[in-house]
């Protein structure tokens, strides 16, 4: 290994107490996190929680006000040039040239990164992503799913070791999303690390580890199972008639923190299992409803965190 290369340690991202304010408003507040090599790390949190700002600080697009950290072993404050060379960043909004064709866009990116053997590389990328028959099409005329595939292809072109994906699947249909995630898993199998922000719970469950952001700070992090366990949430599912009426009644009951309709069922959650069961007891007896304890979903956990977070920060 070349000596000038940064020390290759296990963590690809290590940041400590990153903060960033815009116009006096603190958007990211002492964010600390680590992401290990080969991991798919999910960034979750409500809109405006600082996900995009955090990602932009990681790839040198924004300068943190305070804190320090490294990305691929390069200092995020002083070595953003090197970071840009080795990180693939996919923006939330489609940010390629709509009046250029897919091939032209990819060639442009390949030239900017001074990739050797450009033609073959672009050919191979187009082939691998199944964009062959569309390569001459103007990027502006592509559907959302194809745009997103092209964007991923473009930010993978310079063979980055770390991918930062900012809500890559927003507005994309389920099939395209699934294909996209299959691709992400394939990439991590080759040693690439992925940091991805999302609002979709099914995508959160596909991550190795998750961090939940609210108001610029991480409220919880760990594997999906760890998060479920740590939340201490108990969930009941109820099916039957007059569920709307039941919803109204349950929302007033003590210890009931969430009542969420799921099609023909309701999910009722709370952190105090004993008091929750006590509150629900009068409803258990009624024959029109069928009750059963269930496993809380990640969504229940995050809604809980969100409500909880507001208490702390508002």
């Amino acid at each position: 290994m070349c000596l000038t290369m940064p020390v290759q340690n296990k963590n690809v991202i290590e940041v400590e107490k990153l903060s960033k304010s815009f116009a006096g408003k603190r958007v990211v507040n002492e964010l600390s996190m680590t992401v290990a090599r080969g991991e798919i790390f999910g960034f979750l949190g409500p809109n405006g929680s600082g996900k995009t700002t955090s990602i932009r600080m990681l790839c040198g697009l924004l300068t943190p006000d305070s804190g320090r950290g490294s990305c691929l072993g390069y200092d995020i404050l002083t070595e953003s040039g090197e970071i840009k060379q080795h990180v693939g960043y996919m923006t939330q909004r489609f940010s390629f040239y709509e009046e250029l064709s897919i091939r032209e866009n990819l060639e442009f990116i390949a030239r900017i990164y001074q990739m050797p053997d450009r033609r073959r590389l672009v050919d191979a990328t187009i082939e691998r992503l199944g964009l062959g028959h569309r390569q001459q099409q103007l990027a502006g005329s592509l559907s959302g799913g194809w745009k997103q595939r092209m964007a991923l292809a473009a930010c993978m072109l310079h063979q980055p070791k770390l991918l930062l994906l900012d809500e890559p699947t927003a507005g994309v249909d389920p099939k395209a999303r699934r294909d996209f995630w299959d691709e992400i898993h394939r990439l991590t199998a080759t040693g690439i690390t992925v940091l991805v922000s999302t609002h979709y719970m099914d995508e959160a469950e596909r991550c190795h580890r998750l961090a939940y952001l609210a108001y610029g700070a991480i409220l919880a992090q760990g594997t999906p199972d760890e998060l479920l366990a740590a939340s201490g949430i108990t969930t009941w599912t109820v099916e039957g008639q007059d569920l709307f009426e039941l919803t109204e009644a349950l929302r007033k009951a003590p210890a009931v923190e969430q009542v969420v309709p799921f099609g023909g069922a309701l999910h009722i959650s709370g952190t105090d299992a004993g008091r929750l069961a006590h509150s629900l007891a009068p409803f258990f007896e009624q024959p029109r409803w069928r009750w059963q304890p269930s496993k809380p979903s990640l969504e229940d956990v995050f809604i809980h965190l969100m409500n909880h977070g507001q208490d702390n920060y508002s």
């Binding site: 790839c59 040198g60 697009l61 040039g81 840009k84 060379q85 990180v87 960043y89 923006t91 909004r93 489609f94 940010s95 390629f96 040239y97 709509e98 990116i109 900017i112 990164y113």
Partner: peptide, 13 residues
């Protein structure tokens, strides 16, 4: 305006 600047800034340009 088109958001392509964010992409350019993220490259070594």
């Amino acid at each position: 305006e088109r958001g392509t600047m964010e992409n350019l800034l993220a490259t070594p340009l």
